[in-house]
Design a binder for these strands. Sequence first.
DNA 1: CGCTGTGAACGAATTCACAGCA
DNA 2: TGCTGTGAATTCGTTCACAGCG
Lengths: 206, 206
Amino acid sequence: MINLPPRTKERLIILERLLERLIEQQEDKNITSKKLSALTGWSEDTIRRDILHLNMKAGSKSGYSIVELKSAIDTALGIGNSRQKHNCCIVGLDKLGSALLENSIFENSPFTLVAGFDTNVNRIEMMKSSFPLFATLDLEIKIPAMKIEYAVLAVSDDRAQQIADRLVSAGIKGIVNYTNVILHLSKNIRVRNVNTVLMLKEMYAE
Amino acid sequence: MINLPPRTKERLIILERLLERLIEQQEDKNITSKKLSALTGWSEDTIRRDILHLNMKAGSKSGYSIVELKSAIDTALGIGNSRQKHNCCIVGLDKLGSALLENSIFENSPFTLVAGFDTNVNRIEMMKSSFPLFATLDLEIKIPAMKIEYAVLAVSDDRAQQIADRLVSAGIKGIVNYTNVILHLSKNIRVRNVNTVLMLKEMYAE
DNA sequence: CGCTGTGAACGAATTCACAGCA
DNA sequence: TGCTGTGAATTCGTTCACAGCG
């Protein structure tokens, strides 16, 4: 995993997903920085600079080979799909949590959803899912035992901080936070806040 | 709405939400840049620079007045809660869409959820909600008629681009995209991608 | 003192401009 | 000619260092 400048890294992650789509729809074999620019809104220069960092071999005839570019990015980011998967769980299986559980497409990603947690024991017994569901009580046991690295937090706001703390002390590395709370966690824990209103504000102020 | 540097703007949006929480829990009246730094992970200097842009009047005795700071940010971002609300809609009322509909907290934000759309006419007749639900067919009529500015897109992946195009031609300004598709839209349309796997990749590569 | 406000220095990211290749 | 690759210039963002205020 090469050491990439932070903004480059952010863009490459987006680019990777975009290339994946392009591969799926199989319209072209190659793509130019100009087209990528139109697709992303970033300047051609920036895109070529970003690609420069991943020192691919070939390049210039009518752009980059889409497949090669994608795999170069995967390598640089350390998310090559050959490697072992990273285990994730969802905490909070209320409407949002269970919707995420179905909607989130983990296939073709280096992540696997291996567990769900909820305080409501009736609910976890009723729900059917392709992976086991546990009581939140067992969080501290199951997370290390199952080598779960990342958690999707979809509990109610009033319990968000408390559950997050427990996740951290259970050894979690990062949290995708769907609650409306800004979590206060130690600096080495990674957090991504996912929140409709936050996004709307961002767009509005853009 | 002052013209703020982009990264400053991003941080101020986060800060605003954080200050809102602090106001709610009413523990302190003032806050220093050092404390904000601990809470956010950004340097004190950066925080003071950011605040500098909003040319507040007072400041120094034992930090900033939390309330004043928040309202200065709101003013700078143009999201002062005095102003008129911006209308939003949710498109796609499947599990995820309807979960978002309930979970998304629009109160105390400058946005209001005024409509929902779904292709399934049975569903929109069955569902109960505090605002009207329409058939997706009526999108082009209702969006201008109701002065809807932003849309939350929660349809299935295969229809995402197509619906997004229709939203744009109906006059929408921005889309919060909960689908797994990277949308290709004209540059003046604002988009925020909300996607668990994308967030996981970002965190992993961090 | 501890804190803010801010010029000045520094470092990072982007854009310019153009050489070189197919 | 249309593209990439890349030094050099430029713009943007952060940090340093310190004056000034309560």
